[in-house]
Design a protein around this nucleic acid. Sequence first.
DNA 1: AGAAAAACTACTCGATCGGGTGATGTTTTG
DNA 2: CAAAACATCACCCGATCGAGTAGTTTTTCT
Lengths: 209, 209
Amino acid sequence: MTDQAQIRVLSVDDHPLLREGIAAIINDQPDMVLTADASSGSEGIQKFRELRPDITLMDLRLPDMSGIDSLIAIRTEFSEARIIMLTTFEGDVEIQRALEAGARGYMLKSMPPRELVEVIRQVHAGKKRVPPEVAAHLAEHMSDEELTGREIDVLGHIAGGNRNRDIAEKLFISEETVKVHIKHIMDKLGASDRTQAVAIGVRRGIIQF
Amino acid sequence: MTDQAQIRVLSVDDHPLLREGIAAIINDQPDMVLTADASSGSEGIQKFRELRPDITLMDLRLPDMSGIDSLIAIRTEFSEARIIMLTTFEGDVEIQRALEAGARGYMLKSMPPRELVEVIRQVHAGKKRVPPEVAAHLAEHMSDEELTGREIDVLGHIAGGNRNRDIAEKLFISEETVKVHIKHIMDKLGASDRTQAVAIGVRRGIIQF
DNA sequence: AGAAAAACTACTCGATCGGGTGATGTTTTG
DNA sequence: CAAAACATCACCCGATCGAGTAGTTTTTCT
């Protein structure tokens, strides 16, 4: 044991198996200690209030609320909170949103433990860390315009197999307007038709099932 | 420690974090021991040959080959092998294929450890185990007809934003044939158009990105 | 070998889609 | 406040799609 204070880590993840793995790896590091873990967003927020960990590892998908909402909730209360998103690879939209919401790092569950603990150390030292593979993915689309809320609505209905007329009725707008939205969606996503737009939307995490 | 021989487990998963978690949980059980782990399909096959574990936990997605192919490879050589698929939730197609290929169990990474070890014990005792939530999903589509290889090809091309004519050229068939395939795909999946067919295909794990 | 499933091709026709152009009111934001 | 972004609606038109019908060849399974 060192005299130096250890990095106190909070892990928020609904997969018990993952939590076990994280616990094993964190506690294996002499300079870190897993202070607590939580299996839901609200539990994570509560544990954060109680313990004020140095680093919080947050899964993107949680049973009650999204990891991003939890992150925002914590950072509203404790703006200095250092939170790292830890997730299996989702679309780049999620990554971007997490970083915009103030995440200090973004790690993949598939990364080797050595890198994981290194990111924790770096973020604890005040740096921002996003692994190269994630950064590359992000860069690919950083110039792309984001879809608006309405466009995401429409895209979701397209994925449901709705015709333009059906979408128009469901959204209480004219079919012409739907067509305009679809045109914008295809332009922004670089899709050649509505079908590819859905495929891209799913891959990028814009719409989920 | 008991006199009874322990259940010797091999874990095949490319996520180090998951492997750590599995290791922690397995070794926590007095009647089990993690004999080895592997991070790829071929390594898994090799380790199986060497160690002949009682139970093999196999991830569905592996870097070199699919978990199902690994399962088949092992069971061709050792038909008595007891292999449990352990995965985050994919489409029901994968589950069905794994079970048809001879998997003795199918577990979700999100399941609580208690259930995981219980499944291992049950399978070791010669039973087949599929958790109720997975079984329910499976039952939903058990009556559905499966897509043929050609139909899956076509569906993939549809997802890529190809027009019927493009698909015809790429597959060296006539546009009319493509239309027939698409008709069959939509009928089998219960989709109202090509777009919904892609959405359903992705959700069910028939096509992947 | 014989039956069944899969793959293939052809034709018609109405429905739907997607591109182009142009315009108006509202909301957001610098 | 002014500019930009967003959301809305309309009309034209060619391209594409999907339904229906009908038939042949190849592959697979029993």
